[in-house]
């Protein structure tokens, strides 16, 4: 039982996965949140020009979301090379992860912002708030629980995306599972990596839920 498992390699692969997911999550949020805010703002404006910009932005976001990640990974190789100087390795894998996850998070952010009570925004307008003051002081704080659950969902999705990073030599648990578990028929390696990934997802979900609960606590009665 578990005789084939090379534990130092498993450890190394786990760290690679965590590294890719962590960096990609941060970058996806940093890029996706402004896009989500823009989607929200443009969808609210009545004028024709704003509708056009919204539809355009929306289509671009959807294109990135509809391309299967494995295709995106390969299609983006030239872009990756331009950004990080190489198309091979863990850092190179992060680029397509971010490109795949940022539009995903943008949509989640847009949805979370839509949940904010229109009356509160109107109240801020009546006080003479500018659009950016409303974004910063009203929309983002009021939508915080939804924005944070969006981060959790994105991070969990990125764990699964990162399993394909092996294709560009990115390493990580998914790569380990394919190389040992699938190609060398070492089922126990496959088993161990899957267990580790399940634990990662559970822990991330738990942390995310705790953070959401702590920011929501004050808002609910009690």
């Amino acid at each position: 039982m578990l005789s084939d498992v090379v534990w130092p390699e498993v450890w190394q692969a786990s760290l690679s996965t965590l590294y890719m997911v962590a960096v990609a999550t941060v970058l996806a949020v940093v890029i996706g949140l402004p896009i989500g805010v823009l989607l929200y703002l443009f969808s609210k404006r009545a004028s024709v020009q704003h509708r056009v910009v919204y539809e355009l932005l929306s289509v671009i976001v959807n294109i990135f979301r509809s391309v299967p990640f494995i295709i995106l990974l390969i299609a983006l190789i030239p872009f990756t090379e331009w950004v990080v100087g190489t198309s091979i390795g863990t850092n190179a894998a992060i680029v397509p992860l971010v490109v795949g996850a940022a539009p995903f998070y943008a949509r989640l952010a847009e949805t979370a912002l839509r949940e904010v009570d229109a009356g509160v925004i109107e109240a801020a307008q009546s006080m003479g708030a500018s659009t950016w003051q409303i974004v910063y002081n009203v929309l983002l704080p009021e939508a915080r629980p939804g924005l944070i659950s969006g981060v959790t969902i994105t991070a969990v999705a990125l764990i699964s995306y990162s399993a394909m990073a092996g294709v560009v030599g990115g390493g990580g648990l998914g790569d380990l599972a394919i190389r040992y578990g699938y190609e060398r028929f070492q089922t126990d390696v496959m088993f161990v990596t899957i267990v580790i990934m399940i634990v990662m997802v559970q822990v991330m979900q738990w942390i995310g839920d705790r953070i959401v609960a702590s920011v929501s606590r004050k808002r609910s009665r009690g």
Binding site: G119, V120, S126, M127, G128, E142, K218
Partner: peptide
């Protein structure tokens, strides 16, 4: 207009307070 609005207070039927703020 934003400047002028600062001198016109408004209250609403459903209060419209920020739930995330004290």
């Amino acid at each position: 207009l934003q400047q002028a609005r600062k001198k016109i207070g408004m209250i609403f039927q459903h209060f419209h307070l920020l739930n995330s703020a004290s």
